[in-house]
Structures are given as C-alpha cells and as structure tokens.
Design a protein around this nucleic acid. Structure first.
Lengths: 236, 236
DNA sequence: TCATCTAAATGAACGGCATTCATTTAGTGG
DNA sequence: CCACTAAATGAATGCCGTTCATTTAGATGA
C-alpha cells in the first residue's frame, strides 16, 4: 500500500524549484521519502483542473488525486491560493515569447499576446491571482517579463515607457481572456430591444456580417490599435 | 417549485426602483409586511461591501445588516450570485456616459473609460460576473451600452464595428481595473534581479522618472493608443 | 546496531459558508 | 371571517479550507 506508484513522477519536470517551505526548522536533515512535492502537486492540480474545472478543484479532490490526505498537502503548500500560484506560474511557461528573438517587434508582440490570451482564457479564475501577484513569487512569470522587456528595449522603447506599455498590453489581454468565455447570446437584449435601438442594431449587424468569433474580432481590433499606438513610442 | 431560474415574483415593483433607505424593523418574526425587497437588498449589500469588503460580504452578514435571517433573503434572490448581479448593475449607473451627449467622440470615450475603470477598480470581484453576464439580466448596464453605442454610431462608426470596438475598450478597462489594486512592489524582482537585467532596469527607470501612479500611466498610455487606433475606423 | 531526529502523512476535528426546507406568521382579498 | 399566500424563521445539510495532535518511517550519528 502506501502510494508508492501514485506519485505522478512527472518525468519531464525539471526540479528547478527552490524549496520555499512553509515550516520553520530550516536545519536540513533530508530524511524522509518525499511522496509529495511542489512539482507533483502542480502537475496534479493542472490535470485535475483540466478534468473537473475550477469548480471541481478542491483541496480534497487534489489530495485524492495524489492518494493522500488533504492535510498532507499543507506540508508543501501553505494554502489553496499557493497552489493556484504554482499553477499560474507553470501555465505562464506555455506563453510564447520566442518571437521576440526572431521577429520584428510588432509581430513578436502579436504572437505573444495571442498565445497569452489563449492560455488564460481557459483559466480565467487565475486572473485575479496573477494580476496582483508579486513577480518574486512566480519565477517563470518573471522570465516571461524579462523576455518581453528585452524585446521592447531592443525595439527602441524608452526605458521608462517599457513597463507601462507591457502593463497596458497585459490589461487588455486579461480582459479579453474573460471575453472569450462569455456566452454567445451575451448581447441579446431580449424584451428591452425596443428601448435600445442603437445597441440592438449594432449587435444585429455584427452577427450578420461577421463569420469569425466575436471575441476574436474584438481582440484583433484592440490589439492592432495598441500595436500601432504604442509602437509609435519607439525611438526613431 | 424551487424557481431554479431567476428572481421570484416581485409583484408590484417597477423594476427600476432604487429604494434607498432601510426599512422599518422589528425584532420577532415579521412575515407579510414587506420588510425586504431587491432594492433594499442591493443598497444594504453595497453598504456592507463598502464597510467590510468582499471577504466580509456573506449572506449571513448581509441578512444581519437587514435584521433578518439569512434564509429570508432567498425569498427575493435566488443565490448570492444574484445579489452580486444586482450590485453590479447598480454600480454601472455610476459610470459616466453623459459626455456622449455633449463632447466629441474621443473625449466622451475618455471620460467614460476613466469613470468605468474607477468604479470597478474598487469592485474587482465583480468583474468575472460582469464579463460573462447576459445584458438582459442587467437593465442599467444595458442602458449604458445603449448610450455608448449611440455615441459610436453618431461618431461615424460602421455598424458592424461598434460592438467589437466597445468590447475592446471594455476588455482593456476590466484588465486595468485589476491593475489598480496591485501592490506597489509587484514588480520588485528581489533576489532574481541579476538574472533579469532588462526587466529590472525598466522597472527602476519607471520608478525614478514617474511621479504619477503606475496604474494611471499604463491606463492612459493604453487608452490613448486605443482611441487613436479605433477612432480611425470612423467614416470620413 | 540502535536510539534519535525530523520531514511528511494521517484523520479527526473546527468554523464558516451558501443553500434548503418544514414550519410559522400575519396581512389581504373574497 | 376565513382561506390564501407571501414572507420570515431557524434548524439542518453538505461542502469547503484549514489546523493540530499524533503517528510513521527514512536518515543520521553514536
């Protein structure tokens, strides 16, 4: 009995973690067998979220996935929010920043923004966490910022505008991630249609003319506007 | 029974009433005399949130504010989420759309966007609710969309671009509302500073050069870019 | 070898939460 | 005056995250 095989192992997970540890007693003895660790918890959490969504994501369910008692998790993580932070940081490594090395600024930002939105539109409950999380707590997220900052710097942005510009893009991306999850009929004005003629006709016109997904149309529109407007800040 | 769908009966209320004041209260069981209604619940909820924040906002606390048992609320509201929807819709009436009647498009959007962000930056837990809420369920929100759509239409926007453009602005506004609540040291890279030179220097440069609040700098930058880019969609 | 140290796992709590339901209450309309 | 019904009650339900005293079992050092 006793787990043994139950640990996800997670073969391709580099143990790049620096054990933060919630407990005092830092004197290192390195005794026990390690049935659980942050990497395994993160992987299991991600899998559980994928299967059951954020409603089904409870500490009890997560523990059960790992064949462990719920309280055991608290030896490796100090709260549920901690787990969400781990998941968030892991997901951020799926955001594509590669183009900053190979493409001109505009195309690089475009690639980055679309992939960023796509990743987190499936994880909107994390957005309130990310938006307020100190970068120190999320190394992979910090790495993303470094790659993006470097790209902006190389593209000729004045230093003091780099962070505000990135934040502006990010704000737009987070808001747009929510938009992806909105129901198709969100703008159906129903019985109030008569009293909202301008809005109702605009909604109808969009539905008639457009074949793409409304969230993609809006995202593309806003992103291109930001690219043009913020791109103009670059030094000549 | 069980009215799974929406709010119950509401026999003789003109729907748009905002009864502000609390009601006469008695101590013991008081059934039929209309102690509670949606307007009163909304007002009490708003006040409670102002005093205790969203953490302290529980159905029990709300009921206690109204001198009523928690279960009594469910005669007027079908879930906590329903209360949040009522609050959200009420807050939306504080968003300023007046400028669409008096100012040129660009200035009107500016006023609208800043006030929209300011209102909801104090209520970020509502953002996941709004972003996904059918407009039918929120009459005042619908009214806001009508005013904004009319302004865009009058300004010469092609019909099929009006909704995407508004959604793009809104996405940016919601994301920026979160940004307002971020801690001041969110970008402090701490011990990792050495490995993130571009990012770290950009953060430092911003802190040195800017006297304004970082969230306002980013919002202004992004908003002006959107105004320029999307404004160009207008017919000549 | 064995006593000891300690990280990690356990299971039984705990308090808080939204929500349900049978019951009671008191106005209203017939 | 009575029957009906909207509205309030409070006890109960089930789920949740989290805590804690206790146990388990590798590793360490004698």
């Amino acid at each position: 009995m006793t787990a043994a095989t139950s640990v996800p192992a997670d073969p391709h997970s580099p143990a790049d973690q620096h054990s933060p540890a919630a407990n005092p007693r830092r004197r290192v003895g390195r005794p026990a067998a390690a049935v659980l660790d942050q990497g395994g918890i993160t992987a299991a959490a991600l899998q559980l979220i994928g299967k059951s969504g954020y409603d089904g994501f409870t500490m009890a369910a997560l523990a059960s996935t790992l064949n462990v008692a719920p309280s055991a998790l608290y030896n490796h993580v100090s709260s549920k929010r901690d787990v969400l932070v781990l998941v968030q940081d892991h997901l951020t490594s799926f955001v594509d920043v590669a183009a900053f090395e190979t493409e001109p600024w505009e195309q690089a930002v475009r690639d980055w923004a679309w992939s960023y939105r796509d990743v987190f539109s499936k994880h909107t409950p994390l957005i309130p966490v990310i938006a307020v999380l100190p970068v120190t707590d999320a190394p992979k997220t910090l790495a993303m910022y470094e790659a993006v900052s470097a790209g902006f710097s190389r593209a000729g942005f004045p230093q003091e505008r780099i962070i505000p510009a990135i934040v502006a893009f990010e704000s737009f991306i987070f808001g747009s991630a929510y938009d992806v999850t909105a129901p198709a009929d969100i703008f159906d004005s129903g019985t109030m249609a008569a009293s909202t003629p301008h809005f109702t006709s605009a909604v109808q016109r969009l539905a008639e003319d457009s074949h793409e997904k409304p969230a993609d149309v809006a995202f593309s529109l806003g992103l291109e506007a930001l690219l043009a407007g913020l791109g103009a800040l670059r030094a000549a």
